[in-house]
Design a protein around this nucleic acid. Sequence first.
DNA 1: CCTTATACTAACCTTTTGGTGGGTAACCTA
DNA 2: TAGGTTACCCACCAAAAGGTTAGTATAAGG
Lengths: 112, 112
Amino acid sequence: MNELSRTLKTDEITQLVLKKTLDIVCGKWRLYIIFQLTDQACRYGELRRRIPEVSEKVLVQELKELVALGVIEKTTYGETPPRVEYSLTERGRKVLPILLQLKTVGETFLEV
Amino acid sequence: MNELSRTLKTDEITQLVLKKTLDIVCGKWRLYIIFQLTDQACRYGELRRRIPEVSEKVLVQELKELVALGVIEKTTYGETPPRVEYSLTERGRKVLPILLQLKTVGETFLEV
DNA sequence: CCTTATACTAACCTTTTGGTGGGTAACCTA
DNA sequence: TAGGTTACCCACCAAAAGGTTAGTATAAGG
């Protein structure tokens, strides 16, 4: 019984961990956005221009979510016209190599 | 113009690659299913019992999708009651280490 | 004083994903 | 002959994800 409850608990933790990962990774554009910020911070408009296929609403929404998750951070300069920059957080930079490796997964399954 | 079209093409390839990756990874239960097959093949019913939270329909559906993607394979033994086993394909085993690393991502963002 | 630029918000709609509750075939055992 | 076991299928439904279109504040530039 004790062992069972320990097993259950481990499963629950694994599920939590995986859920968090999926929150960060899933969503059609999240990885794409993260990869755009690999080297430097990027303004909102610049992101729009670099990923023209994503709709405005979704981009804003995804950026907000990634900020809430702690993957990226937002810096607002009180200027007009407004200037806002997005960049990776420390944690974001920490996991970036793993996320970049995910390309290998896609490549492996696209090979003939 | 040549450079632009080359850039566009690269972007398209990146998008294809990422899409393929997301197909494999996303979905509430896909990673979970893949991880269950790390060491040995597993029967359908065994998977059901190991992941009780997933509904029957969704499990079947996810298994089918993973087979179609080439991540896992299905072996049917013509017995009654039926026996069906799922296991990782060669490609599946190849990318498994990368997928396992994804746990690190979740852990990083769950830390206090 | 009208336009332009930037970084958004809000209302609304469609598609995709995940889930429930039933049913099925085939053989074995009691 | 009734019930158990296994690995599914089908019709239907709710919620989440993704997308379109229009509108906003502010200041600088012509």
